[in-house]
């Protein structure tokens, strides 16, 4: 009798231990995140681009760009802009030098050599200007479009976390700033007097 009880107790304990060790409960969000991480790491992809490709990224001089779009917006954007699929929004990589004329809540205003001004965005860093302006990724390579979208999210996060804060600590009115960045121009609403450049490089000339 005692032997049977011992036998069944051991069997029950073995089943419970085996069952406990064969099942792991995790929050669904964590599982989904780890699965996505295994497939595509948008943050690593974006960091690699920012660290290794920005310096050599071809860019148009901002004064030349402003002059061209004021002369022939449709023709210039169609020929030189990069856009995603069927869209009125064209993206460009620009570079130039300007003097800080004011520091606003969402941007720093720069006066360029040609007396025109542009905005370097310091808040509301959203959209696809960097990803699409640089043509660093092709949507046709991504089975899951969210992976492609995540590239923009991570690029913008890096700009927000790593590029803007050190600049904002130092920058003041009157500084001369060397910049490279991305801009989106919608030909149906170009707003060329207040173009917002998402910065990729910001350097204050000492």
């Amino acid at each position: 009798m005692m032997g049977k009880l011992l036998k069944y107790s051991i069997i029950t304990i073995i089943i419970l231990i085996a069952g406990y060790n064969s099942v792991t409960l995790s929050p669904l969000d964590e599982v989904k995140k780890s699965q996505n991480d295994a497939v595509f790491n948008a943050r690593a992809y974006a960091e690699n681009f920012i660290s290794n490709d920005v310096t050599s990224l071809p860019a148009t001089e901002v004064t030349e760009f402003l002059s061209q779009i004021s002369e022939d917006l449709d023709g210039y954007t169609e020929q030189y802009g990069k856009r995603l699929g069927i869209s009125d929004a064209y993206n460009f990589i620009l570079q130039g030098t300007g003097t800080v004329s004011s520091m606003e809540e969402e941007y720093v205003n720069l006066i360029l050599e040609n007396e025109k001004s542009i905005h370097i965005a310091t808040d509301f860093i959203f959209g696809n200007a960097i990803r699409d302006g640089s043509a660093m990724a092709d949507i046709g390579d991504y089975q899951n479009t969210m992976d492609f979208n995540s590239i923009s999210v991570e690029l913008n996060n890096i700009v927000r976390e790593e590029i803007i804060p050190p600049f904002m600590k130092k920058a003041k009115v009157g500084d001369e700033v060397l910049f490279k960045g991305a801009v989106t121009v919608d030909v149906t609403d170009p707003q060329s007097d207040s173009l917002k450049i998402i910065p990729l490089l910001l350097k204050i000339n000492e």
Partner: peptide, 8 residues
């Protein structure tokens, strides 16, 4: 053909 064509 492009595998994906997004529309704005």
């Amino acid at each position: 053909f492009s595998k994906k064509t997004p529309l704005q």
